[in-house]
């Protein structure tokens, strides 16, 4: 088991390393560099030379990659091209905000999704299932900016219950984001609930039709005991991976929501950095998001393995 864990960890590290090379190479291939972006029209002749000298841009790309990578390993992501601030500090605050948003959405979304998924799976083809399944399809297909706008219109413009936009500054402590964070959380939770609900529903249906549930019924096990003891532990296994993908999405892919609600998260910072051509920041965020993806998926795989006796005993009993 430990050997298995270490091997997966090693493979994950290799993945991150390869991704970091691709990110670095991608930024390298783009026309221009940090200096041309920073100096804009003055980027010529002596000034450009000096700038490049100062930022060590004249050394071969491989050497610069190794420097960047080893710094990143120590938590030093370099300085931004615009304003020469420490990227680690800038990103740190944004990452916290993104984590806050993700955590809230997960706390609300995952239990709701699992509960509703189980309900619609158990009452398959009944009215409650039809309502939930159709609702899920709507939540998945309506673009987030539309549902976000509608929610803002209803809850902050018409009813005036909740603030429609986040005005707290990026470096503020977590508690100050309430109640501004509620609407973005609701929008995110809706989308993720829909995805998880559908997975859980189909998995519950499959398990409830399995031979072992039939056997448990014929063994005289009461219905709810079958559901909780025989069916759900098996039905929820596939949900782990969907939840993992959702977490990764919440941390890096919710740019649209962050823009609509003016939420100072990682995604919006990335967009800003791209439009400013702040390449070191783009590089750093891409690396962080990639690491999160790898880390979360690794955790999900390991959790599945722990939760599924078939996989677990493969490594614990020889």
């Amino acid at each position: 088991m430990l050997q298995m864990f270490l091997r997966r960890l090693f493979l994950g590290a290799i993945t991150v390393a390869i991704v970091s090379m691709i990110i670095f190479a991608g930024v390298e291939i783009l026309p221009g560099d940090a200096c041309t972006a920073f100096l804009e029209r003055e980027a010529q002749g002596r000034v450009l030379e000096n700038c490049r000298e100062e930022l060590d841009l004249n050394r071969p790309a491989v050497v610069r990659y190794l420097d960047w990578a080893s710094d990143a390993l120590r938590g030093d992501l370099g300085v931004s091209a615009n304003g020469q601030r420490s990227i680690a500090e800038m990103v740190g605050a944004r990452l916290q905000n993104s984590l806050l948003l993700a955590a809230c959405a997960l706390i609300v979304g995952v239990p709701t999704a699992i509960f509703l998924g189980v309900v619609s799976g158990l009452w398959r083809d009944r009215p409650v299932d039809l309502v939930l399944s159709t609702g899920a399809i709507f939540a998945m297909t309506i673009p987030e900016f539309v549902s976000a706008t509608v929610l803002i219109l209803v809850f902050s413009v018409w009813l005036g219950w909740l603030p429609g936009i986040v005005l707290t500054s990026a470096n503020a402590p977590a508690s100050e984001f309430f109640p501004e964070i509620i609407l973005p959380v609701v929008v995110l939770a809706m989308v993720m609930t829909a995805h998880i609900l559908r997975t859980v529903r189909s998995s519950v249906i499959e398990v409830m039709n399995s031979d072992y549930v039939q056997m448990a019924t014929l063994k005289g096990v009461p219905y709810w005991r079958i559901v909780f003891r025989h069916a759900l532990p098996n039905a929820l296994l596939p949900a782990i991976n969907v939840v993992a993908l959702t977490i990764a999405w919440l941390l890096g892919g919710v740019v649209v929501i962050e823009v609509v609600f003016n939420y100072p998260g990682l995604g919006r910072m990335m967009i800003d950095a791209i439009s400013d051509r702040d390449l070191p920041v783009v590089q750093a965020i891409a690396l962080i998001v990639a690491t999160v993806y790898v880390g979360v998926n690794l955790t999900a795989d390991l959790l599945t393995m722990v939760a599924n006796p078939r996989l677990r005993t493969l490594y614990t009993r020889k």
Binding site: S210, D211, Y212, Q214, N234, N308, P309, R310
Partner: peptide
């Protein structure tokens, strides 16, 4: 009244 199923491999709950 008890039943012995055809495919016990699939009739035993895998997580118990």
């Amino acid at each position: 009244l008890a039943l012995i199923p055809q495919n016990s491999g699939q009739s035993l709950t895998p997580t118990l």
